[in-house]
């Protein structure tokens, strides 16, 4: 059940990034899915979380013009690193969340640089990509915590609604 909920949240965020924001028109200053990956890594057990990340990565890769595996790689290694960090440090602090969002953006940019260099782009494009990365990191530092809080509120509301519906079903029909 939780896995389905998290996957639906991922799809919702994908829709926000690909359909809602371009209509305003605004381009997300950094990949909002990074925050979702951080949230999933902190909230779900390893195996369930891994499932959510795999589905999310495949969906984002399929909808994007990026080489397949670009997002899957970024999300998976961010998730994996966070799992290790939690295991070693035994902390779930706000600082960890903040750092994790920034590390996620950095990781995604490093994967982008790898993908760009493999496809044989010129030096000017690489410089542009690095500039994009720095810009994203700054936006992530500024807005990352806010997006995380909004996501957490969304999960709380969604969870409450789901529990309410389940309770009603159990009480009403005796399911």
């Amino acid at each position: 059940m939780a896995v389905i909920g998290y996957i639906l949240a991922s799809i919702l965020l994908i829709l926000v990034q690909t359909a809602f924001l371009p209509q305003i028109p605004v381009r997300a200053p950094f990949d909002l899915m990074v925050v979702q990956v951080v949230y999933t890594a902190l909230a779900l057990p390893r195996l369930k979380g891994c499932g959510v990340i795999l589905v999310t990565g495949v969906l984002v890769d399929g909808l994007s013009g990026s080489p397949f595996g670009f997002y899957l790689t970024s999300y998976f290694w961010l998730f994996f690193s966070l799992q290790i960090a939690i295991q070693v440090l035994h902390v779930y602090s706000r600082v960890l969340i903040y750092v994790a969002v920034l590390v996620g953006i950095l990781l995604e940019n490093l994967v982008a640089l790898l993908a760009l260099s493999v496809s044989g782009v010129n030096a000017a494009t690489m410089v542009w990509a690095v500039e994009q990365g720095v810009e994203q990191l700054l936006w992530g530092a500024l807005l990352g915590p806010l997006v995380y809080v909004l996501l957490a509120v969304g999960y709380r509301i969604g969870g409450g609604l789901t529990r309410g519906i389940v309770c009603q079903l159990e009480g009403g029909d005796g399911v």
């Binding site: 984002v60 890769d61 080489p67």
Partner: peptide, 27 residues
């Protein structure tokens, strides 16, 4: 895998239609 995928523009052959089927109607 990512290196191979980056050098091939049609690397998402199987996944892209799946992702389009799943999310494009909502989009």
């Amino acid at each position: 895998a990512l290196t191979v995928s980056s050098s091939r523009p049609d690397s998402a052959e199987g996944a892209a239609p799946l992702a389009l089927h799943l999310t494009a109607p909502f989009q």
